[in-house]
Amino acid sequence: MNISQASNKELAKNISVDPSLISLLRTGKRKQPQNRDHIKNMASFFAKKCSADYQRNALSEMLGQSSISPNMPAEILAERLDLWLTKDPDITDQLFQGMETVPSKP
């Protein structure tokens, strides 16, 4: 959330859920969404929002993939984020809860 500089309301609107769900995910009161489309839509949203070099670098570190570049199409990045998010349900929780240490804009 911090890497993309997105608000709960903005993400919720883009994935067609109530902002309170995003808030519950971020506080850990809700676990990974059961609706697979929500996760796919989140991945697509974050891929589109993270187009700057510093954002792509932060995503590279977070995903453990050095091949994420500013030139990577958002669709490819969305696929990688989707795989990363669905690989381990706890990762989605970490995405919302553990993003306090994010590189700042240069």
Score class of each variant (00 low, 15 high):
P106F: 02
L25A: 05
R56D: 00
E79D: 09
D82W: 10
D37T: 14
I68H: 01
R80T: 05
Y54V: 07
L85K: 12
P106I: 02
S69C: 11
R30T: 08
V102I: 15
L59C: 11
L95Q: 11
I76P: 02
E79L: 05
N41F: 04
G28S: 10
D90M: 05
P33F: 10
A12R: 06
S51A: 04
K13V: 08
R30I: 04
N71T: 15
M42L: 14
Q5N: 10
N35F: 06
I91E: 08
I68C: 03
S16P: 04
S16Q: 12
R26H: 00
Q65M: 15
S4K: 04
P73C: 09
R30A: 08
L95S: 02
R36P: 04
C50E: 09
I91R: 14
N35C: 09
D37S: 13
Q5P: 07
T27I: 03
P73H: 12
R56C: 01
Q65N: 09
L95G: 02
E79R: 11
T101I: 07
I3D: 03
I22G: 00
E79M: 09
S7W: 14
S16G: 11
K48I: 08
S67R: 04
P106A: 03
R30Y: 12
T86K: 03
I76C: 00
S20Y: 05
K48G: 01
H38Y: 11
N71Y: 11
K13L: 13
L95Y: 05
L83N: 13
A58H: 01
S67E: 13
F96G: 12
K9S: 07
S44V: 10
N35L: 06
S44G: 08
P73N: 13
L24P: 01
H38W: 08
L21Q: 06
S44I: 13
I68W: 03
K49C: 11
A52Y: 09
S20P: 05
D90W: 00
K105P: 03
S104G: 13
E10I: 00
P73R: 11
I3G: 05
A58I: 08
R80M: 15
P19C: 04
L81S: 07
I15T: 12
D53I: 08
K105G: 06
N8L: 01
R36Q: 07
G98N: 13
P89K: 11
D18M: 10
R30F: 04
A74G: 09
M72D: 10
Q34L: 07
L24H: 07
Q94D: 13
L85I: 12
P73Q: 11
S66D: 10
M72A: 05
E61F: 02
V17C: 12
D93G: 15
A78Y: 02
S60A: 14
A6V: 14
Y54R: 02
S7A: 06
R36N: 06
N8H: 06
